[in-house]
Design a protein around this nucleic acid. Structure first.
Lengths: 200, 200
DNA sequence: CCTACCGATCGGTAGG
DNA sequence: CCTACCGATCGGTAGG
């Protein structure tokens, strides 16, 4: 498996630091994780970290902007494809699960840790997030207008679906221990969202 | 509106501290919130806090065990009532929205901040959480066995529904600014989960 | 409820 | 990549 490239710099030690930091930020939270924690996870002294990065905050920014751009590019591509709105929604869900699975260390940071971003990274992240929500909402609204979807409140529906998808961010441990495959989540999610839980 | 009573002590200053702390913990996170932050929100000096509580950790424990017990008692009562499984699921969703709305300051702590609990509070919280999940899952499984629900994977379905409900925890600002009422969420959620998004 | 103060730890720098 | 070290801030205590 190729190591994830969060930024263009070719520095495997830096990549290692970013990965370990992502794990710790996801488990304990950004504020509760010290640079000493990260250094110990790597096996070096704390000051040595600063040969590979400028600050603790830089780590958070690189990780979150990397994954936020992935999500944004993904939904933009799907939105522009010629397909029914039902198919588009299905593809967005699939993309969501794929990115969260491919980047299990970073995905949990999307839950709360983005709040710890400082400017200008905070605004850049918020902008990507807003664009993602808007495109997702547009797919729902166009699906309603086209008569494919029920005329439910688009804001609430959007947020309920996004919130359900967030389960995948932090549940990597859970569904490996329960032998759940990404395809299982995808098919269960699709059946639930499209046709509902009731039998008849 | 009556002030929430998190514990039996009649000390309105203490209640005020707990409320302000809950707000800050929810916004910035437990670790990123200092006792100085809390004291300033109240308008007193930091050491004065310790006349009303023993430690920062005690605040987190009181808040989280209070709301965890509410959820547990709520689902236990619903589970024991004579009703169809569909009605029970609907009532659980309703209870969920009601508790999260009544305790908007505390609900966001259920997302991530419980990880910062120390023993023995951590285990007590985890136990209530586990019992809640088990009862919820049993309602789903009994509904499947009774032929009311489709035979979807109960674990995945449980987690997708719980994750969707978590939207309400942190979205108090959002849905007041969008003029969304709790009943709107409840009806949208019920339609989506029971019958799905597709029109036909 | 305050002032004065404690040891521990924080992110980060200097210099080699 | 290390050792030595910095000022700032942390949660919390003493004492009144």
């Amino acid at each position: 498996m190729l190591a994830a490239m969060y930024d263009p710099q070719i520095d495997s030690r830096r990549q290692n630091i970013l990965n370990q930091a992502a794990n710790l930020f996801g488990q304990k939270g950004y504020s509760a994780t010290s640079m000493k924690d990260i250094a110990e996870a790597i096996g070096i002294q704390t000051p040595s970290l600063y040969n590979h990065l400028q600050s603790k905050q830089e780590i958070l920014q690189v990780l979150l902007l990397f994954i936020a751009r992935l999500f944004h590019e993904g939904i933009l591509q799907i939105y522009q494809r010629p397909a029914s709105h039902t198919e588009k929604l299905q593809q967005v869900v699939k993309m969501h699960i794929r990115i969260a699975t491919d980047h299990q260390q970073i995905a949990p940071l999307l839950l709360q840790e983005w709040k710890q971003l400082e400017e200008p990274a905070y605004s850049e992240f918020a902008d990507l997030r807003r664009k993602y929500h808007n495109l997702f909402k547009t797919i729902l609204e166009e699906g309603i207008a086209a008569g494919e979807f029920k005329a439910l409140n688009a804001d609430i529906t959007l947020n309920l679906i996004l919130s359900a998808l967030k389960w995948i961010y932090g549940a990597a441990d859970y569904y490996t221990s329960h032998a759940i495959k990404p395809e299982d989540i995808e098919s269960c999610f699709a059946e639930l969202v499209f046709n509902g839980l009731l039998k008849q």
